[in-house]
Nucleic acid binder design. Structure first.
Lengths: 219, 219
DNA sequence: TTGGCCATGTAAACAGTTACATGATTGC
DNA sequence: GCAATCATGTAACTGTTTACATGGCCAA
């Protein structure tokens, strides 16, 4: 009559690690020991385009990383007055990042597009109102596109220098630290994504604006 | 010597209303009084592609909408056994949705692209590993694209029938309820966005895979 | 009898945002 | 004297996700 139900072992399902910011910070710290402030700037200038975070979240996530032993931090005030807390990656931290990378994404994340929600229900609005919003969005996306193109140009200059060196990388093998040529290629690709995305967006907006204009003119 | 600092009125900044799910539900309920279960399905089949929500969030958001007086709900068990709580939009709810729509988005939301984060730090991985992940992603995005194309075809059929009717809509004027022709046009456009997005994504993946192959072959 | 669909919720944890809070240095 | 930049954090809140929890109908 003993109840064995307590002994039933739950099935282990592959849990997809999210916690993106954790791994972004680890990646940056691996490249170079940094302070929270520096990491926030690294974020703003690079990955911030596809993964934004506020400084408050950066600091709290760094505390979590330290608690988990993935980084170590030291207050350094070296030659100046300022108290800077510099973060260093630990061996455990390196291992965690590599493991996370080796566990590939097996699904596509759910898209969240605010404007599409508004468009979906804009049958309640007048066409000129909708058009005005779409034109404003077009302007904003054109600005973003210009930013990406500038960024690509500066990276592009680096890349050309890099290409003069020969690539030294065997398949299935890397030395633990990042391969600089491969890294440059991949980071360049993320900017290309940004450009392709904004171009697609602007194109879509143009088409929709045109479509609305033609409906409007019928009246 | 009185301290007047307490009287300083904070400057009022335009707060951009987010709370997307609230307005999505309001929009659907306006179109047709519905239960939480029905709303969850409407979401999954349409706006879920650009704004996902779990059923738990749907139910809690409905409670909030009711508390704010934007909807009214009634338990109905009509001809069957089931207890269904049907939600009806109130005049206040209609006003809230229209006001939200009339307050246009004045910035672009921050992109969140999980894969780009991984690509950005994949200099730590071997090229075949990266390639494998990108090919998997390509497959997943092709599946998503196929889903969008199917959805568009079914909508497209509706649209042709709709186009035989004449459009009756004056600029700056609408009757409170949604204009069916305009709504169809706009909802069709959201599917076109999905298709354009997936095509762009697949294209970008193809380019990156090719680039990696060429780097790999140098070794 | 098993699984799928209908139907509704609560609770806890986690991620992300906004606001609060402080203070030194540097250049105009 | 003022604004910008460097520099670090905490607190409260909102939004999202996961897990818990229940129960009836119907068809294979």
């Amino acid at each position: 009559m003993t109840d064995f139900s307590i002994w039933i072992i739950p099935s282990f399902i592959l849990i997809i690690e999210r916690e993106m910011l954790k791994y972004i910070l680890l990646g940056f710290i691996w490249q170079k020991p940094s302070t929270g402030y520096e990491l926030k700037h690294a974020l703003d200038n690079t990955t911030g385009n596809f993964w934004h975070a506020y400084h408050s979240q950066v600091y709290t996530t760094l505390r979590k990383l330290e608690e988990e032993g993935l980084i170590q931090t030291f207050v350094e005030n070296g030659n100046d007055h300022l108290t800077r807390r510099v973060c260093y990656i630990t061996e455990k931290g390196k291992k965690a990042l590599v493991e996370w990378l080796n566990d590939p994404m097996i699904e596509i994340p759910k898209m969240k597009e605010d404007l599409l929600v508004r468009v979906f229900f804009s049958g309640l609005r007048s066409i000129p109102e909708i058009e005005a919003e779409l034109r404003l969005q077009k302007k904003l996306h054109e600005q973003q596109l210009a930013l990406y193109r500038d960024a690509r140009q500066s990276i592009g200059a680096d890349k050309q220098i890099a290409e003069t060196k020969t690539v030294k990388l065997k398949p299935n093998e890397h030395n633990g630290d990042m391969d600089p040529t491969l890294t440059r290629l991949l980071q360049h690709a993320t900017f290309r994504f940004g450009i392709a995305y904004e171009e697609m967006y602007i194109h879509w907006l143009d088409d929709l604006i045109k479509e609305l204009k033609s409906v409007e003119s019928i009246v």
